[in-house]
Design a protein around this nucleic acid. Structure first.
Lengths: 223, 223, 223, 223
DNA sequence: CATGAATGAGGTTTCATTCAT
DNA sequence: GATGAATGAAACCTCATTCAT
């Protein structure tokens, strides 16, 4: 789980690029890492190509050379972000756990992923602001269904049979709810923190929220 | 140009214009409405002052005259948006309902509010992208605590006493979860729809989600 | 005839624009004059928006405000150029002259117009380099048929009847030939001068060419 | 990449490549052909070095290696273009024809050359747009006088003696007029076609124009 | 001989904002 | 109170050219 970050390539841009060296892959990676940071921090419209190039220690021209343009770069970042979460999801193996433990793991995984990958949330919010324009244009992303839905369906079925879970649960609705409980918390942590007057991202608050999310889902599933 | 407004202005607006008198207020309102639409549709960075002025049928200079600048205009929109939801929340009167019915009403209200006010979600996401910069700078917003939290606390207390609800529920966590179940659904409807290949915003899907959200919260509260 | 230049507005850009004054029409005119000079001197691709703005003493932004963009500005210049020549052509009144004198005037007019409006030739050559893209996109230009064709037809008819001209002459071919004899000379003066080693644009050479062009056309028309 | 050329290279090219030996010449030729096409299609300013390299299937660096730069490449193309027409002109042998037939052949040759070598016209127009800068800098081109002028002088002299032609014709003026009648037609075919609303380059129109050009010159020469 | 990566200058265009009336 | 013209900074992007291998 801890490896989730590394998959996106968060090696700092500067680190990735030894100055003056000529290496296409390195340059691309550096641009990519810089773009991820910039888009995450400022959004698509707020991001600046100049800043991405500077962060990457690369020439601006290279962005256009390798990625085509700002919008394409954003799409590339988005695609890699989706690839990363799907890959992390696929690494979950819950078959050996009893349904309750499995569900607990799954909710915890989802929650932890959002905590550790704040860029995922920022990028997705941005994409939704733009009406999912890029996702819709990317067959690659559209075809990347989350394995979580069928995992959930499997766990629900096992739980139903063992009598641990109620019988009338829709896996897709549950999938969305599991995501919602964590995603919304991190997505809106800044405004919520401002309004509640305390930092929702401190260790204790996050831990409390994590327990709550698991609690909500498991309570809901009780027969 | 002078006729542009008149064509748009409705009867009451025309009525109100007693020879240049309430013109100012009208202009402000028009700018405001235009800004809300623009910020909602494009985000703070994607919004264009020119377009806001054009939409408002007003001179660009007026935006600076009345609001100070783009950023201030955004803050004004945000403040009014928060004011509106708090006001709507205060109109909820659940004291006469039994705890279960009251909670059901409250969850439904929250869900419906998000459905009917998509701009609220867009603006909040934008504000969070920018680290709640404007909310933090606005004492007005920071002081607008949601009455829902104490409402929830009250309902929980009544439910605990009547044995309808479990005893160990944190009102703030519940408040966040109630919001999450609806907010996330509408906030991410575009990407989720693209990925699931069906429109999550059609009447039937929304209705199903609404029932599910209520179900999750009430099931969670069972003792 | 001498007024041909003025119609295009060759008042120098600087002259047209008193610094610091706010006058939309003046600014537009200044931009226009600057654009004409720039496009004439460098061609569409060689022209620089920066230089046009500087020549006009205007802010670059104004070009986009008033004309839309470089390409649109080129089209505007082209349209005005066509308008100017058509207008000049319409001022020709040859009805009172006998056919031979009328034709002589017409050939001389054409020749002189090319001499006095070198920008016309430059712009047309540029437009032809681009496959007449702008002309084809401009209904305005496409509809501006030259009145010369019907003038020529009329003179030919009168000459045929009086026995001054041969009978089998196609007015359109003749129109093209009249244009060709002058246009080509001025269009290609630079290369021809370089190759012949003498300046084809000096007064004497031009005068000689003018007589020759008239001679060719009138000799051709002899019965 | 290595295979890109091979796919294009025809049999003879492949034959000639005796293990890297005549590779150089091949590359140069490919660049040359690509440059001709690019300059013809887009003009000097509109031409892109990248595109030339791509069209040639060559590395961009080779352009600088073999030709020095974009401008030098243009000059090289121009020189070869002039060389070609002079060479074609020298192949004309009109001594055995009577003056009228000889002149007819010469006009036809000129007309046909323009029709068959549209790039010649494009390049020359471009060169004139730039004030014949390259021609003037190229001694090679400046020294390439057209043999047509002296051919014309010869034919005129023979015609004068035989009584077939008038006596007062300037060979240079006639040379320019012969060129003009064809050159202008093809040079401005795009705009003329757009304005007349019919394709001046279709077979029939070209044939009609060809006859007209010959007619004009021969009629002019009648004593 | 040949390559693909890299660059800096400069291209067109757009922005939020201010000025003059 | 209101307007439309004007602006400078900066945005995205492209260019001919050179570098390292």
């Amino acid at each position: 789980m801890r490896s989730a970050r590394a998959e996106i390539g968060d090696a700092s841009a500067r680190e990735a690029r030894v100055k003056g060296q000529r290496n296409a892959e390195q340059t691309q990676d550096a641009i990519f890492a810089a773009a991820l940071a910039e888009f995450t921090g400022k959004g698509l419209d707020g991001a600046r190509v100049d800043r991405i190039a500077a962060r990457a220690g690369a020439n601006k021209r290279m962005i256009y050379h390798y990625f085509g343009g700002k919008e394409d770069l954003f799409l590339a970042v988005l695609e890699r972000t989706y690839t990363a979460i799907r890959s992390a999801e696929r690494k979950l193996h819950l078959e050996d756990l009893d349904p309750v433990a499995a569900m607990r793991e799954l909710v915890a995984f989802s929650f932890d992923y959002f905590e550790r990958n704040p860029h995922f949330i920022k990028l997705l919010n941005n994409e939704n602001l733009h009406g999912a324009r890029h996702v819709r244009s990317s067959g690659e992303i559209r075809d990347m269904h989350s394995p979580l839905v069928s995992m959930i369906a499997g766990i629900l079925e096992r739980g139903r049979k063992s009598g641990a879970f109620r019988a009338d649960v829709d896996p897709i609705q549950l999938y969305i709810s599991i995501a919602a409980l964590g995603y919304f918390y991190f997505s809106n942590a800044a405004t919520l923190s401002a309004i509640f007057g305390r930092d929702l991202l401190d260790r204790q608050a996050v831990e409390q929220r994590r327990r709550h999310a698991i609690d909500v889902i498991l309570s809901y599933l009780r027969p």
